[in-house]
């Protein structure tokens, strides 16, 4: 289990344990954390699981693939450096303590 902190746009903080091998999106879904919609269920097809990764974590995460970058460009209010699609981040032990913040809305 890996501890991840999800912070809603209104500041509400959720600290939860997520199983290795799931995605950061699934961690939010399974803990019923609002703000990540994930309409396509994790196929990198809808861009509704967008978050801003805490600055300290940007370089520690696996790089974005082209598919994710292209989808993100049209998400709501993306940030070049910190925006990620949570369905594309697989949870591993290296992510212990990860902090992500939700955008104001998904689309």
């Amino acid at each position: 289990m890996v501890k991840i902190t999800y912070i809603e746009f209104n500041g509400t903080k959720h600290v939860v344990d997520v199983e290795d091998g799931l995605t950061v999106m699934e961690g939010a879904r399974d803990n019923d954390i609002p703000g990540i919609e994930a309409d396509c269920g994790g196929a990198c097809a809808c861009s509704t699981c967008h978050v801003y990764v805490d600055n300290d974590w940007v370089d520690k995460l696996p790089q974005k693939e082209d598919m994710e970058s292209d989808m993100l460009e049209f998400a709501f209010s993306p940030d070049d450096k910190t925006s990620r699609l949570t369905c594309q981040i697989t949870v591993t032990d290296d992510l212990e303590g990860l902090i992500v913040r939700m955008p104001e809305k998904q689309i």
């Binding site: 990198c44 861009s47 598919m67 292209d70 989808m71 460009e73 049209f74």
Partner: peptide, 12 residues
């Protein structure tokens, strides 16, 4: 096809 850029623009 493998082109989310076009998809996202087209959708919008």
């Amino acid at each position: 096809f493998n082109d989310p850029y076009s998809y996202m623009i087209g959708k919008r």
